[in-house]
Simulated assay, not measured.
Amino acid sequence: MGDSERTNVIVVGAGASKEFELPTGAELTSIIQKDLDFAIDRFGHLSIGNGDWELKRAIEILSKETKVPINRYYGVAQQISRNMALAPSIDNYLDTHKENEYLVKVGKLAIANAIIKAERGSTLTIDDSNIYNRLDFSKTKNTWAAVFFKIIAAKRDYTSFVSALQNITFISFNYDRCIKQFFL
């Protein structure tokens, strides 16, 4: 880490955001299963069931923009929901069904919706009442990112610290934006 001439690549594995109160891959499949738990009544109308209203609205917008009947999207939403309990991951499930563009679109909407909701509740959220628009680092002091930051900052003046940061590239296997939020 200390060699400023070397470019450092940090690979962040799936689940590294758990410390920031974001879901693991297994938890994400459970969230998506619940969020897509829509039901169609005998008249063809949507019953929200356990589903998520924001996700329902996003699917309605998708239907209007693509001019695809809403029931086609609700049908794949039900399919995803029913199968999440046995899916190794949402990524794996979407890859298995990549030929079904409707399913993939709904799956990606469900991922984005779940991550956005989780980010709002994470330790990296900036409270709207925070007039300085700054993170509360006391909530993250024991995370891997804080430890990594301390290692980078140790025994460096500001200029060499910034130089060290410029030589780091992150490769992340996480959907969320924790790394960017923490380091920026």
Rank of each mutant, 00 (worst) to 15 (best):
Tyr73Asp: 09
Phe173Cys: 01
Gly75Ala: 10
Arg82Thr: 09
Glu27Val: 01
Asp127Ile: 01
Lys18Ala: 14
Ser17Pro: 03
Ile59Glu: 07
Glu101Ile: 01
Arg82Ile: 05
Trp53Ile: 13
Asp41Ser: 13
Ala154Phe: 09
Thr143Ala: 10
His45Gly: 07
Ile131Val: 10
Ile171Asp: 08
Asn167Cys: 03
Gly13Glu: 10
Lys139Gly: 04
Leu62Asn: 09
Asn50Pro: 11
Gly25Met: 14
Glu27Cys: 05
Lys34Val: 01
Ile59Met: 13
Ile168Glu: 00
Ala26Arg: 13
Arg6Gln: 11
Glu21Asn: 15
Glu65Ser: 09
Thr29Ser: 13
Phe161Leu: 12
Gln33Lys: 14
Lys155Pro: 01
Gly51Phe: 08
Asp95Asn: 10
Phe43Lys: 15
Ser63Cys: 05
Thr24Gln: 03
Phe20Cys: 10
Met1Trp: 06
Lys67Gln: 09
Gln166Arg: 12
Asn130Pro: 10
Tyr93Ser: 04
Ser160Cys: 02
Tyr175Ser: 00
Met1Tyr: 11
Gly15Glu: 08
Gly75Asn: 11
Leu124Asp: 12
Val68Trp: 04
Asp157His: 09
Phe137Thr: 09
Ile10Cys: 05
Gly15Gln: 08
Val76Leu: 03
Asn174Asp: 12
Lys64Val: 06
Tyr175Trp: 07
Gly121Ser: 12
Ile126Phe: 06
Lys98Arg: 08
Ile31Leu: 13
Met1Gly: 15
Val11Met: 12
Ile152Val: 14
Ser17Gln: 04
Phe183Thr: 00
Leu135Ala: 07
Lys108Met: 11
